[in-house]
Design a protein around this nucleic acid. Structure first.
Length: 619
RNA sequence: GGGCCGGUAGCUCAGUCGGUAGAGCAGCAGACUUUUAAUCUGUUGGUCGAGGGUUCGAUUCCCUCCCGGCUCACCA
């Protein structure tokens, strides 16, 4: 943003096309935040009054010129935003279809040639005298990359010169002498010319350039001047379907600025192939998870995202309010208690993939809303779920990343750090880890003071309120982290940190729980579920005691959940897996923001004067 | 919330030990009938994140604020 365009309502940049500007700004303002009334009401601000309508975003010369091209097209009697063009194939299909004719050729448009129709966004324009090349991208961009790579391999195998195969675009070629009027209009500048960023529909026939690039020759008639099959008389071989008003980022460096990339993800997706690949892999993860659990007899369910009672995890919640019912609600921090109610109801295998919301700090690995998979299986233990999880991850790695071995960052010497996701994963007790990596004796492990001394020596901060069990866990995570790069199930957690988990039969101070660490980060948390309603009630009570002591991340008493347990929850094990982190793992990405399409950002400041902004600390 | 770094043309960046700024790409005008970061010639474009202060003069120095990145703390 360049700012300085004044407060809303004043000093608008006069748009070239007034009718267009009016239409767009009417639509835009409805979705704009009401900055003037911020804080005036507790929950829902009033809709903006006409006096507070924000102006459209600022314009520059490049945009004004492009807007004027829309005017010119309208003045020429054209529909500025036509919607009657239908592509008959994708760019990737165009390339694959020519695979059997690797040799360059310049076949003429013999009568009977069938026209192909492609649509896409113009990513590059290359006018060379009386010939012009444009590069388009369509939804098949990922496949185009693959097709070009495959094609290049074929060329090499046939002794032909290799071509660069790193572009996700496909090429369209047009020759001036075949339609001088259209060629000049599109490529010779002036009021109606084509711009990078426009979305076009192109009709023509496939061919290869002299350099061997599979291309579409834009043309709608054969050499006799008769329409090609699939074209109508007078049809243009290139049509602008949507004019891009805003110029795209530079073609070589692309869009780099992270703030702009996350705020304007649409531009990021246009410019950066890697981003599209992450989105694609995330989609594969979601489908893979569903296939996995569906195949094992689980039912996918959706439970409330707005909870009247806080529970299922230890976390600070977002609070909201239902106006008509005049009641407070929490955005859910976990679906756990609802899912186990379903198991009580006889849905013995359920899973849910949905958002959790936690009102905590943001970091490379934390976003206020994140996607969680939770699944519950009756007549299973947490050990059974270890097998389920390692099987799932190995399967996903193959389906999404192509192998059970995936790269995750680099080692300290700069070499690729590889993670082996083939089952079985390593299993480590917290006590064993403290001995092996922390150099502690069993006596020290049960001595809170000794543990705290060790933590101080290591420079590890541990909360003063933490109980023995919590100190053990925190110290373990501190000393073990370097050893938790390869997938590792950590288990034998102390009971006080797990108010919903089943106690271990031999050691009641422990619970039957594991956490899975990969690449040093926690991916999964699971346990055999506590199904003793009396014990559960007492653990909720203990949570209330903690809350009274000032712990802000405790659960609330959920009597209905206890009532459900009183009807009988079969022996059940449940597991949560952070989908975002799993996608990070399978895309070799070190930031959760990269795997979220729209990571949380502070609101964009659009040139509003500083004195109009609420002062920090003033409610 | 703390620390460090950053915000300059549509994009990617340089620069100004204080005298209102440059390049490449994009754009505009032109040459070029197989280019692919095309090439060649000419050229337009910036309240240098916002506000305040110091100064004859601030994009540059000082203060405050906004936004972002990295990092620490809390968390998954």
């Amino acid at each position: 943003m360049t700012g300085g365009q004044g407060v809303a309502g004043s000093n608008p940049v006069a748009p070239t096309n007034r009718s267009l500007a009016a239409t767009v700004s009417e639509r835009t303002c409805a979705a704009m935040p009401d900055q003037g009334l911020r804080g005036a009401r507790r929950f829902w601000p009033s809709p903006p009054s006409p006096l507070q309508v924000p102006t459209m975003l600022e314009r520059n010369d490049l945009m004004r010129l492009r807007l004027s091209k829309i005017d010119a097209a309208r003045a020429a009697g054209e529909i500025a935003y036509p919607n009657d063009f239908q592509p008959s194939l994708t760019g990737a299909e165009l390339i694959v279809a020519q695979r059997d004719s690797l040799e360059p050729f310049d076949a003429v448009r013999a009568p009977g040639t069938i026209a192909l129709h492609l649509a896409g966004r113009v990513m590059a324009i290359n006018v060379k005298g009386k010939a012009a090349f444009i590069r388009l991208r369509d939804r098949s961009a990922t496949d185009v990359l693959q097709a070009r790579a495959t094609e290049n391999d074929l060329r090499i195998s046939q002794g032909l010169e290799a071509r660069p195969a790193d572009a996700s675009t496909f090429q369209v070629y047009m020759q001036r002498n075949e339609n001088e009027e259209l060629f000049d209009r599109m490529f010779k500048g002036g009021e109606r010319s084509l711009d990078i960023g426009d979305i076009v529909g192109v009709s023509g026939r496939p061919f290869r350039t002299r350099m061997g690039e599979p291309s579409l020759h834009a043309c709608t008639t054969d050499l006799d001047g008769q329409p090609l099959a699939g074209c109508t008389t007078g049809q243009h071989c290139i049509r602008i379907l949507t004019k891009g008003i805003r110029p795209l980022p530079e073609k070589y460096h692309g869009l780099v600025d992270k703030e702009t990339r996350f705020r304007q993800r649409y531009v990021d997706l246009i410019m950066n192939d890697e981003v599209r690949e992450i989105v694609r892999r995330r989609s594969l993860v979601m489908r893979g998870v569903r296939d996995f659990f569906d195949a094992r007899g689980y039912l996918e369910v959706e439970t409330p995202m707005m909870h009247p009672i806080l529970g299922g995890a230890a976390a600070r919640p977002f609070r909201t309010h239902h106006n008509a019912l005049d009641m407070p609600l929490y955005l859910r921090i976990a679906p756990e208690l609802y899912l186990k109610r379903l198991v009580v109801g006889g849905l013995e295998r359920v899973y849910e993939i949905n958002r959790n919301f936690r009102n905590e700090g943001l970091s490379q690995r934390h976003n206020p809303e994140f996607t969680m998979l939770e699944f519950y299986r009756a007549y299973a233990t947490f050990e059974d779920l270890m097998v389920e999880v390692e099987t799932l991850l190995a399967e996903l790695a193959v389906n999404v990343a192509g192998a059970t071995e995936v790269q995750w960052g680099v080692n300290s010497d700069g070499s690729p750090r590889m993670i082996q996701l083939a089952a079985p994963f390593r299993r480590v007790r917290i006590r064993d880890g403290l001995q092996e990596w922390g150099g502690l004796t069993l006596a020290e492990i049960d001595d809170e003071k000794a543990l705290r001394n060790k933590a101080d020596a290591l420079g590890v901060h541990i909360d003063a309120h933490a109980t023995l069990g919590k100190v053990q866990v925190e110290l373990f995570e501190a000393v073990a982290e370097p050893y938790l790069v390869q997938p590792t199930f950590v288990y034998e957690y102390p009971a006080e940190t797990s108010p919903l988990a089943r106690r271990n039969d031999q050691h009641p101070q422990l619970v039957d729980r594991f956490e899975l660490f990969i690449g040093g980060i926690e991916i999964s948390n699971a346990f055999s579920e506590l199904n003793d309603p009396v014990d559960q009630y007492e653990r909720f009570e203990a949570q209330l005691t903690q809350k009274a002591k000032g712990d802000e991340e405790t659960m609330e008493m959920d009597l209905d959940y206890v009532r459900a347990l009183e009807y009988g929850l079969p022996p059940t094990a449940g597991c949560g897996i952070g989908i975002d982190r799993m996608v990070m793992l399978l895309t070799n990405t070190d930031s959760i923001r990269e795997v979220l399409l729209f990571p949380h950002m502070r609101p964009e400041q659009r040139g509003a004067a500083v004195e109009d902004q609420p002062k920090p600390g003033v409610a």
